[in-house]
Amino acid sequence: MHIVVVTKATPDTGAKITVENGVPTWKEAMVINPWDEYSVTEAVVLKEEHKAKVTIMAVGPAEHDDALKQGLAIGCDEAIRVWDEALVGHDSLQYARALAAAIKKLGDVTLVIFGKEFADSGSNQHIYQTARLLGFQVLGSVSKLISLDFGAGTIKVERSVEQGKQTVSSKLPAVLGVLKDITEPRYPSFIGIRKAAKAQIPVWGLSDLGIEAGTPKATILSYSEPPKREGEVEFIEGESPREIAEKLAEKLLEEKVL
């Protein structure tokens, strides 16, 4: 019973990010991708319930080590970082390919857990791409794990979709993308942090995985800051709530948003 949970670091969600000389820039620290607080905790919860082993993985440069160490501090057994200079500038499909190759290399993995999306890119393609490349089932938007039986090789989850909740059962191996309501996040203990700080995280390159970087098929041409909204507020005042409400309603009817 071997579970892989994948994670990445991202600028603190409170960070002020600007575009300087054409690239996104911030001063604040990197933190574990906020969606992964749930996925990593869920992996550790399952480890305890099923006596499984959990390996936490990231594909990317050394800036992701702290997220991996946070995972170790919460209770993941091992961390592996996959990185190769040949991956610089590559699109998500190449990252997914590297991740899939690394999971295959572990050999005995039957459950892979992702957070809902990556806060940086705001996309969640890796989940589905990695699953297809591995030939695993993919269950995205999982809000609840109803049952998991490694012995029988089955899993049953509840998925939250736009118009409701779908219950789906599947055979393992499977890849899950989990939402916030899957679990209450755990935070590292002092002892956990001390232990994780000493960990040496192995880095697997493309040659270790026996693959080569393909040609990127998606490129970011430029970055920009969204138009500012600041300074446009008009305060509505009046003698009574009723008067304020009437004035505001007039304005909204003029805006033609009703």
Binding site: T10, P11, T13, A15, K16, I17, V19, P24, A119, D120, S121, G122, I220, L221, S222, Y223, S224, E225, P226
Partner: peptide, 9 residues
Amino acid sequence: MYAGKVLTK
């Protein structure tokens, strides 16, 4: 990107 703080082309 970055929760809407940055736009990309």
